[in-house]
């Protein structure tokens, strides 16, 4: 079954599949697999490596003014990823934890919307 849900103005594509005793839920590029264990309880069986990736999502609409990191770079907590000029304020988007930059989804001077992905972390 395929469907879309809208959260905070962002559409998410959801795919639901039953595979043997397991249920596979795909949200965008991320995949989660649920199945029953021996006791009959629902557990997360396995997940594709992609589901370990975290996406930094923009919490506001604005323009990317500067990008301070590179793909492949490992950064520490609090490191400035980029600045976003938004709602008449300047916003520094920083690392919540130590992480590695997998992919940068935006460029300088690019307009981004609230809910849009900015960076994918490994």
């Amino acid at each position: 079954m395929d469907f879309k849900i809208k959260i905070k103005n962002k559409e998410h594509h959801i795919e639901l599949k039953e595979n043997g005793g397991a249920v596979k839920v795909k949200v965008g590029e991320k995949e989660f697999v649920f199945g029953k264990n021996k006791e009959g309880l629902i557990t997360t069986q396995s997940a594709k490596k992609d589901s370990l990736n975290k996406e930094v999502i923009s919490s506001l609409s604005g323009v990317v003014t500067n990008v301070f990191v590179k793909e492949g770079e490992s950064v520490g907590t609090g490191k400035k990823f980029l600045t976003l000029s938004a709602m008449k304020m300047e916003n520094e988007i920083v690392a919540e934890n130590d992480c590695k930059i997998k992919k940068i989804l935006v460029k300088e001077n690019q307009q981004v919307k609230e809910g849009e992905g900015l960076i994918i972390l490994e």
Partner: peptide
Amino acid sequence: ILTENVIGSD
């Protein structure tokens, strides 16, 4: 006037 925010998960 310039407001600056530092944003992580919040």
